[in-house]
Design a protein around this nucleic acid. Structure first.
Lengths: 233, 233
DNA sequence: TGAATTGATATGTATGCACAAATAAGAAGT
DNA sequence: ACTTCTTATTTGTGCATACATATCAATTCA
């Protein structure tokens, strides 16, 4: 360990970050090559590589073979959104989660949802309505279609004890999916469940998740009017 | 290269992912140690480490020293949200971005915003109202406070040509910040700018960004009623 | 019995080396 | 001028090795 200060890749990363934020390395400018920087900090090139790769993954650096590494002109940092489980989200807010399975049956798919799921309208899907509560206060009203072709076991599932949300994550983890947030006036059913006036603006999340072959589920979460979706940047 | 199939860490990663998704490695179960797995695939432990680390970063694996690596019980994948620049967002939707700087002055900070920015109410901040357009149609109405303490150059800036959004990203990149989405009835001014009826539900984003010392800016974006925030999962 | 120590084990990381891959820039040929 | 080929440079990755670090588990000691 020749240099006490830059022994690990996280130290190298921190030093590079310092130079970026202090503008010692200007936006758009070429920074020293891995080899040079390694020599300067008396560490191995591998270590520098690890550090710079980490910064590149966060969008602060742009790296190209032969062309070198540049500081991103418009450092855009991505916010991470992790809301796969409503119950977790409620717990994270310091409240105690619970849910009521209001209704569970089987019905044909409305055409606009069929399109979102890339499924034919023909076969009926499992339909579930759930009210999520935080400390016994309405938190979100969930309407969901489940494709039994993708998850046969869902026919026999009982979503009163375990929410459909969690049940599906455990039994049919998805490969990919899409999220869609919008602001919409509360529909009659949702308004009643959430205890607010109809037409009250609510934040609505539509989520479709897909398994290896076909869509697993479509879900719409209508959040209570005071809901805020917050993220760190 | 003894084994054609598992030469690189991405191949190792793919194989591990296959075993997770096929449930050959059950949720919650311990998977082989790096050494074992490396032996099985005839590659170096470093390579396996790289692959498994990548899966762990995505939340599919839980790794602990001495305790080994387990498949996450509830594989939760995070959606990435990248909306630092309105203009980019509009372009990504296939439209042509433009903006109108409606008003630019200096005024005292409302107390609830002061709280969000962790600033005293006393000193007046720069205030800017902007309408963002996509193909000449209203896209979002922006109200913004800028802290001249953090960005002195903002006093002389002209936000008619370059939007405050982009100007700030170029001149005062932030260290961290918070995002807050909610659904709110359109306020009179926003409704007029967006060309919709007052009280129409709109998706509203409140964003605070901080520099190394103090807050840089607070901005509220009220999106047009047909706006959808979409992400991949 | 219970707390502290010790050892074993899996992951985390640093290093030197080699080679692969991408590509910018220059050289050569038309 | 224009295309094609070559070369050099930079990042990307693999491997063997060594040691660091966290932590589970057994053992020792009070």
């Amino acid at each position: 360990m020749r240099n006490e200060e830059y022994s690990g890749w996280e130290d190298v990363r921190a030093e590079a970050l310092r130079r970026i934020q202090s503008r010692a390395w200007a936006p758009g400018a070429l920074i020293p090559s891995e080899e040079e920087f390694a020599r300067e900090l008396s560490c191995a090139r591998t270590t520098v590589n690890r550090a710079l790769r980490s910064l590149a993954e966060e969008g602060l650096l742009i790296r190209k073979r032969r062309a070198g590494t540049r500081v991103a002109e418009l450092p855009q940092r991505a916010a991470k959104l992790n809301i796969s489980l409503v119950a977790e989200e409620i717990r994270a807010r310091g409240a105690s989660p619970s849910h009521l399975c209001i209704l569970q049956d089987s019905r044909p798919l409305p055409s606009h949802i069929a399109a979102a799921m890339s499924l034919p309208v023909a076969a009926p899907l499992i339909y579930v309505e759930t009210l999520h509560l935080a400390d016994a206060r309405p938190f979100a009203f969930e309407t969901r279609f489940i494709n039994p072709q993708s998850v046969p076991a869902a026919r026999e599932a009982d979503f009163a004890s375990v929410s459909a949300n969690e049940w599906l994550l455990r039994h049919a983890p998805f490969n990919h999916g899409t999220l869609d947030y919008s602001a919409r006036p509360a529909e009659a059913e949702a308004a009643e469940a959430l205890g607010c006036a109809p037409q009250t603006p609510t934040l609505v999340l539509d989520r479709v998740t897909h398994g290896p072959e076909a869509a697993i589920t479509w879900v719409r979460m209508a959040y209570a009017p005071d809901y805020h979706l917050t993220m760190k940047l």
